Simulated assay, not measured.
Amino acid sequence: MEKKFRCAVIGMGMLGSQHAERLYAHGGTEIVAVCDMKAEKARNWAGQHACRWYVDFREMYEKENLDLIVVATQDPYHKEPIIQACEQKIPYVISEKPLTTSVKEAYEIKEAAEKSGTCIKVLFPNRFYPLDRAIRMMLKEGGLGNPEFGEMRMDDSIDVPRNLWGKDSKNFSAISSPVFFLLSHAVDLLHYYFAPRKIIKVYAKGKQSVIGSEFDYMDSFLTFEDGLLIRLKTEWTKRMEELVENYVQVTGEKGGFSYNKTPGFKVEQGLRIYIEADRKNAEKILESLEKEGIRAALEYSETMQAFRFDLKAERENDFDWNSGVCIYADSFREELEGMVSLTDLNDGIRQVEVVEALLKSAKEGREVEV
């Protein structure tokens, strides 16, 4: 049996503690230490799991012989733990999204990683969901023809900035916004769906009025290098009981899809894809999905004069979000067969570049190149 990775988690808030729990139970990793500026958080978790705890990650790096660190601090505070890990020659780093909240800091991390040889990946578990993989496969195999335009909404309930981080919620929402908190996920998903296409221009308008973060709301248009146009909207002030609402729709030359990824009020979760193809090609696509373990129902729609794929987010088509960190950890050890492409350092930097361009566009009222 291969030696387990000696792991540490920095930032023991909601996500950090979840990552630590999963890595603690995972067969390929051993949590040897946790770190948080708030001693109580680190001490409590360490006491329950018989590992060491620190309030200073630099001290932890010096005292622990680490193979892997997970950085789960608040969004603006990823840079220093990652750069120090590179300087200490820690081989592997998993960063919570976004990699950083500025392009300048992202490239400082890249420079440090190139000097040290540290391998850095940015944690985006959305890529693992079977319905998102089905979209990627359909686009890659040309089932929709050339994608032309579409839209994505990714909204949070107002309860998120008000209460998600407990007593720290007001402070965190003041230094963040849904632009980095939510659109980092959205931009990564769009790059995953439409790879190898990249976003090259953005135009955005935003408003600050309800919570008081830099932007409470943003609407934007993203232009890809082949002319594909996606409207992308986000807010974290929506009055709804549900925590998140995420919807995606795309129109292509020969078909399109509508995807209620995370449904809001009285909306059913699922993905519906239409393709204008003959039965042989439609059944070939269905077979490809089934080979990937993705279940879909195939029917012909007389109304649409196209074949319809219906996919529900249940049973084989479900995914445990929290298990993503373990897949990332395993990916450092070996290339897993049939593996979903993970967000590497360059992908993480590209995502930061797009989000920073969106912020610049909204502030300056003009289209901005990425």
Rank of each mutant, 00 (worst) to 15 (best):
K4T: 11
I230M: 12
D347A: 06
K207D: 05
V34S: 02
A42P: 14
W165T: 04
G166T: 08
G255I: 02
K63Q: 14
Y247W: 11
E367G: 09
I94Y: 04
N260F: 00
L23N: 05
I135C: 13
R366K: 13
F128A: 08
N65A: 11
F149P: 00
A134I: 05
W45T: 04
L144V: 03
M152D: 09
G365W: 14
G28Y: 08
K363P: 07
Q269L: 00
G252A: 01
L311E: 00
H78I: 02
A329L: 00
K198L: 07
E316R: 01
R315P: 07
K110G: 09
R308E: 11
M37C: 09
F307S: 00
A72P: 14
R315I: 05
N246P: 02
L229W: 01
M218D: 01
I90K: 02
D216W: 01
A306K: 02
I10W: 01
A39K: 15
F309A: 05
E59I: 08
V210M: 10
E364T: 13
E21D: 12
F180I: 06
M240G: 07
S301R: 14
E287A: 11
H49K: 10
E268Q: 08
D330Q: 06
A313R: 06
L229S: 12
M60E: 03
D56K: 07
N44I: 08
V187P: 08
A282S: 01
M154P: 00
I158P: 11
A46H: 01
K312T: 02
K280A: 11
P147A: 02
I109T: 12
I120D: 10
N322M: 06
P81A: 00
V248A: 04
K238F: 08
P130S: 07
K205Y: 11
R350F: 12
N322Y: 13
A313H: 05
R127F: 03
E30R: 15
K38S: 07
P98I: 09
P76K: 04
F265I: 15
T223C: 03
E214C: 06
I94A: 03
A113Q: 15
I69E: 00
E242W: 03
E335P: 09
W53N: 12
S209K: 15
S17R: 14
